[in-house]
Design a protein around this nucleic acid. Structure first.
Lengths: 287, 287
DNA sequence: AACGTATCAAGAAAATAATTTGCAGGAATC
DNA sequence: GATTCCTGCAAATTATTTTCTTGATACGTT
């Protein structure tokens, strides 16, 4: 997979000297990507050959191969080590947020459960009617975004962020329908209740949430989204980007499954919008 | 900045041989990051010293420095060359979408207008009341997301995706208030109308949109978001992720400006949610 | 318990490979 | 025709890897 994961996974099988090397790489990645084998060996108090052996053990061809791997992944992969932007100057804040977002995507990709995603896409594509649930600002955005993405594919879908409505909808749904719920924390008790209700009525359910959480436990299919949430209360949000990406993946897979129908519906909607605007065909679907 | 931009910018000042090297790097990045200087020189039909000189001209210390730079940026920076996923297998679609999203963030960062962002943040922080506008699914999501982010900081804000409401709100707004509008295409005529109305009433306006577009033209401050939109109608959405990132940046900057007030409000909201849930303090703000 | 053997880690030195520098010939430009 | 810049060759330098050896540890045998 990627070199950082490998380093962590293999840590137990490394020797003392190799652990020292690994620690230096992990702690001072900037140094590591720029250093020569001699410099790195010097800093770790080992000989250059030991560094070469270390790289080999991690599955790299050579030391320079190792450095390339390092540079590739670490650019997006290791920034969560720095919890705060360097300063609150706009450029630094921007860099921090963008890097964290890229990082969230990186981690999402690393932990993605493709089997679950595919199962979810299949169910979505086959549902007669879809109910998308989510509350609390972040997840409600995901729910309405779900609707925004799926109705364009010709699917019947509604969304709600209202707990009472969710319960009523869950009670009204049929076994040929589908409930999709999103919860960042996985601890949305009302959503758990709605899912439980659905389960009793044999209505299939899909959860986008943390694995192992109460919401995940009651869903038929869970698409797990597990990311370490930064603790800066001002920016609780790179997780959202990961959720949106999952949504995109689901919507794309569903679209590929329904291609002919979806294309036709999209074209109609697009036509509608284009004639309503100033006729530039290159504009986005739905702004 | 980054090595690819530099290569494109410097292209005119490069010699024949150097252009050959640049083309090989650009076209076969995978080869380039793994090749030794001799292999790369061989493929470009030049001598190794020429490659070294090429790297120096691009501002790198050495050939290996060049490779590291290459590996760093190219991982996220150059994937839009491949317009389609390798297959419609879930893993490939996922990889495609995630890479494109990372790429959108990369391009956003590269083209970010920090001055405009800062100006926008200042105005937001100083506004008595904020109206966030956007329509059409994507931008309406941004507008309500704007509300979701900013009310937590103790700001007075409402959002609307309804054109008629937008016009009425624009007419009702005061010069101490603020209008924020989002338009992916920049061609939302109704938003232009609302902005024009606001301008006449001396209500300040901020636009999140394509630079040079009609919406950008009528706003006091434009935060330009210019990304090449992929033409696959099934995935019109990596742009959205860029918009959300800009929103995050704005919200963070505003938060830093209002820190004491914002912290208190957030704590209150969090308290509310936590006591309402099962008491795990580590959960997200608002799910 | 003592000894021997096997296994592994790790450094020194040598060998190899890669990269850079200095220099000179040649092409292009003014 | 002179100057400048490009380019490759060969040499020098530097970096990396291989080989060989030593030392340590674990395990089995006597």
């Amino acid at each position: 997979m990627d070199i950082f994961t490998t380093m962590q996974d293999e840590r137990g099988r490394l020797s003392q000297s190799e652990i020292r090397i690994a620690d230096i790489v992990l702690n001072d990645f900037e140094f590591a990507v720029n250093a020569s084998i001699i410099e790195l060996a010097g800093k770790a108090d080992v000989s250059p050959p030991t560094v070469t052996r270390f790289c080999r053990r991690l599955g790299c061809e050579s030391f320079s191969d190792f450095k390339v791997q390092l540079a590739r992944t670490a650019y997006v992969g290791m920034r969560y080590l720095k919890p705060e932007p360097k300063s609150i100057a706009p450029a630094d804040v921007a860099q921090d947020i963008i890097t964290k977002a890229q990082n969230a995507l990186f981690l999402l990709h690393r932990g993605l459960d493709v089997v679950a995603i595919e199962a979810a896409a299949n169910r979505i594509a086959g549902a007669e009617m879809i109910y998308a649930f989510g509350s609390g600002g972040n997840s409600s955005m995901i729910a309405s975004e779900m609707q925004n993405r799926l109705f364009r594919l010709g699917l019947r879908i509604t969304s709600s962020s209202d707990h009472s409505m969710q319960l009523m909808m869950a009670a009204a749904a049929k076994p040929t329908d589908l409930l999709i719920g999103s919860s960042f924390s996985g601890r949305n008790t009302e959503l758990v209740r709605a899912f439980t209700l659905a389960r009793e009525a044999k209505v299939p359910t899909i959860a986008l949430t943390q694995s192992g959480s109460p919401v995940a436990d009651v869903a038929d299919v869970t698409v797990p989204i597990d990311l370490p949430e930064g603790d800066n209360i001002y920016r609780p949000t790179s997780t959202r980007i990961a959720y949106l990406a999952v949504l995109d993946i689901l919507a794309s897979l569903v679209a590929y499954r329904l291609r002919p129908q979806a294309t036709a519906t999209l074209r109609r909607i697009k036509q509608q919008l284009v004639t309503h605007r100033d006729g530039d065909d290159r504009q986005l679907l739905g702004d």
